[in-house]
């Protein structure tokens, strides 16, 4: 295999991985705080359509991204209000948020179907970004570098900072965290807001970088892969990065398998792989409970302070 093919494969895999990495980073923080938001797919779609619409209208990618993140955070706040303030069931609310996001993005996106915008491409000079070899380092959309920075940022935040410690405490034992004076609900609101913003950013990656256009259900179920990824990575940011690139490689292989029609492995099996692998990981985690890999203890359990 020649260099150019390897380089283009690497770049395709990273391209496919970045949106699920972004969305999964957000969901990881949400779940670490003890909340399960199944609305990722819906929030991603809201981000994707808003980002596209604003960019098309104003011509500024960054403005599109900021407003998209704001819009998806707003939808996450709806989830937060219902589940945290009104202690509604998180599973049902999250699923409803996904159905809502699919619907409203289709409705809002209707006028934009078939239009295209300029791709949100690398900010490095063309001599680097389009260099035959160096493009493997410099040739990505700024969002790819952002996703890497955020992975390290989230990892550092959870492991090394006091705020990260509080967030984990809230997710592991809400009653203890509450009784030593931390605002469980406040922390969870912040986490859900972050998750919403990240899902919006992930959505923008679809509509501003990968395609760049808008069509109904543009994210094609990738929100569920992001959810699987968080579990697959056993709620650890470093594994999230590796897992994202692994899932990205599988998804890329699936697309090529479909296009080339080769027969040694069914593309459907490849497409099901992330989900099956996640179930295996769930089982393995449970077998080795002591290794500190388990799900946050308060995941999806509502918190009702008695006072």
């Amino acid at each position: 295999m020649s260099d150019t093919i390897i380089i283009s494969i690497i770049m395709t895999v990273i391209g496919a991985s970045t949106p699920i990495l972004l969305a999964a980073l957000g969901e990881l923080v949400v779940e670490k705080s003890g909340v399960l938001n199944l609305g990722i797919e819906g929030m991603m779609l809201i981000g994707a359509v808003v980002g596209f619409a604003v960019t098309l209208t104003t011509g500024f990618h960054l403005l599109g991204i900021v407003i998209a993140m704001f819009a998806s955070t707003l939808s996450a706040m709806l989830f937060a209000y219902l589940t945290l303030t009104l202690t509604a069931n998180q599973v049902a609310t999250g699923l409803a948020l996904t159905i809502f996001g699919i619907g409203i993005s289709s409705l809002m996106g209707e006028p934009y179907v078939g239009k295209t915008i300029e791709i949100f491409s690398s900010w490095f000079p063309a001599s680097l970004a389009e260099h035959p070899q160096l493009r493997v380092i410099f040739g990505y959309s700024p969002l790819v570098y952002v996703s890497l920075a955020l992975t390290f940022g989230v990892s550092y935040f959870l492991k090394k900072t006091r705020a990260g410690l509080i967030l984990r405490a809230v997710g592991e034992s809400d009653i203890s965290a509450h009784s030593i004076g931390y605002s469980v609900i406040g922390v969870r609101y912040a986490a859900v807001a972050f998750g919403g913003a990240m899902a919006g950013l992930a959505g923008c990656y679809f509509s501003l970088v990968l395609t760049p256009l808008w069509s109904e259900e543009l994210t094609a179920g990738r929100g569920w892969i992001a959810l699987a990824l968080v579990v697959f990575a056993a709620w650890k940011p470093s594994r999230l990065l590796l897992g994202a690139y692994l899932f990205g490689a599988i998804m890329t292989l699936e697309l090529h398998a479909k296009a080339a029609g080769f027969s040694f492995i069914a593309p459907e099996l490849l497409a099901a792989m992330p989900y099956l692998a996640t179930i295996v990981v769930l089982a393995l985690i449970s077998l080795r409970k002591s290794s500190g890999l388990a799900a946050p203890a308060c995941l999806a359990k509502p918190f009702k302070p008695s006072t």
Binding site: A96, F100, G103, S105, S106, L107, E110, E216
Partner: peptide, 9 residues
């Protein structure tokens, strides 16, 4: 669009 009913649901 077909998904619009989902908003109401």
């Amino acid at each position: 669009p077909n998904a619009a009913a989902g908003i109401f649901q």
